[in-house]
Write a protein that binds this DNA or RNA. Sequence first.
DNA 1: TCTGGCACTCGTCACTACTGAGTGCCAACT
DNA 2: AGTTGGCACTCAGTAGTGACGAGTGCCAGA
Lengths: 344, 344
Amino acid sequence: MQEDRRLAVLRAIVEDYVATEEPVGSKALVERHGLGVSPATVRNDMAVLEDEGYITQPHTSAGRVPTDKGYRLFVDRLSTVKPMTAAEKRAISSFLDGAVDLDDVVTRSVRLLSQLTRQVAVVQYPTLSRSTVRHVELVALTPSRLLAVLILSTGRVEQRLVELPAEVSEDALADLRSQVLQAATGQIIADAVRRLREAVPEVPGPGPDRDDGVTRAVVETLADAMEDHRSDQRIAVGGAANLARYGDSFDSAVRPLLEALEEHVVLLKLLGEATVGGTVTVRIGAEGPYEELASTSVVATGYGPRDEALATLGIVGPTRMDYPGTMSAVRAVARYVSRILDEG
Amino acid sequence: MQEDRRLAVLRAIVEDYVATEEPVGSKALVERHGLGVSPATVRNDMAVLEDEGYITQPHTSAGRVPTDKGYRLFVDRLSTVKPMTAAEKRAISSFLDGAVDLDDVVTRSVRLLSQLTRQVAVVQYPTLSRSTVRHVELVALTPSRLLAVLILSTGRVEQRLVELPAEVSEDALADLRSQVLQAATGQIIADAVRRLREAVPEVPGPGPDRDDGVTRAVVETLADAMEDHRSDQRIAVGGAANLARYGDSFDSAVRPLLEALEEHVVLLKLLGEATVGGTVTVRIGAEGPYEELASTSVVATGYGPRDEALATLGIVGPTRMDYPGTMSAVRAVARYVSRILDEG
DNA sequence: TCTGGCACTCGTCACTACTGAGTGCCAACT
DNA sequence: AGTTGGCACTCAGTAGTGACGAGTGCCAGA
């Protein structure tokens, strides 16, 4: 019960802060949201939330601001999906329906997405590269280090050293090798990544078959190597002018982001792996792989015809953003684009 | 003599202002440059320069700042070419020499140019579109209005209405038509534009053959229509992070520029037509076609193998920029790129 | 034509005091 | 135990003030 109210307080803080861009205090909070308690009570809750790391004060005696952790909780448990209005849906479909070819679809999507979210939009071109995995080899160097070799149909060879979290026997390794081979061989890269993650289950817990994260380490390394190979992928970026709204915190926030926008490899990493079927991935601030982008979040999802996750699209913006609205916009655009690809 | 000194003063003001980003006063001026006169004298000169519109004061009792007109004069008559150092030349060639294909050349050029100038670099891909002019028709609607029809080998048709500055006879029109046809038919677009401008000379002055700008109006309209058709041209942009240095004047300067950078058609217009052979075009502030970009300048030049102006490259930056340095960087990069295209 | 001098303007900076939003804590209340 | 009102305290932001100095325009004299 108090627990519930504390979460309501957190939700209110996030919503207010996103709307006003100013630290929000206890009094304003009870006024603007109908929590039926006094400011003092809210203050106590806030103190607890701060202890738990969900909010912080920019300086003593100012309102509270959500932390990354706070946004995370908000996104995971507190946000209610904000459905697109009929008008918005109509706007989306009419905007995309005029597209004449693939290039046009992507260009329009980027523009649409950046206008809907008022953020920087990023759309990866659907995978056309048909390069496949020809072979994977795992060579044990020591019991806890192995070399993963990836050979692609294009003839490219990629080697990675894997430090294992535990020692592994030759038998177990052979087992793993055959599993990996079966999952990946002959697949195009995008599929191989997905199948690897799905088809090679982690053996959990203790016992004779315990795994200690070895599988995980190997699979992730391989997937990473494959993702790198998507780097010849094309990407479209739009709405950079929305960065002008950052206003403050310029050198710290906008500059690294502008740099990232030119490094398409970086962008691909940011977008992450494609997930499909309405699942929108949110990466908040420092959760991402780049320190300089600690104050930016990524909202992305996969898209493609017949629910194949061919590519990824999404937006990049400040951690302080309207997550529910952005997420539903991203999801809606992904759906419409997928449908169009279905038809075309 | 005083005239000479006044120009020296202007040059000094531009140089100091570009270096310091602060309005420059009379005293600082005589100290930092060895003009052998007193501050009072300089003040008098400055008053004149201000009357003539070359400089202005941001507020009473502050130093002077060059106007667009001032920069123009500086660029045209006062700037001494700043040659590239040997080290810079080496850096340029080694940076570009590693390029493997056309895409790579363009990508590297953009990066190089933005790093050299610390501005936003724009490189147009060399014309690959081989679409040619199939036919041009000029139809008189009234004696002073005609319809220009442009038919391209791709099958596209472009119509433009031309308001003539004077009436024109059927004979003169037939003459013009045949000239235009001869110049343009069968040419690829880039060449057609150039040949049109060269081969259809304006008949000047009064007399039986006087032209009153009719030729000019027609040629420019046609050229414009053709330029529009280059709009499927690809463009590479780089170094947008350098915009972070603008710091102040954000919404007024950076936002429109960011928007322009995404509108490749706009960028093409900004870069303007390719000029070749070491000629670097400088467009300062409001001289350009876009009001919102009144505080940005464009420094561009053409490039291409064997001195054919296949495409344009250049930079976009604040009017307050180091013109000599930027111009020589742009020219140097254009030369090296041209040479590489020559070899490849 | 140039120069030195002088009065004047006005932006900048450092300092002060004030205000007000917001907090934490405590004692009292339900 | 949880909630509330009250109170003292903190501290960013906001004038207001005065001194400072860079810079100007103008004028009389060299």
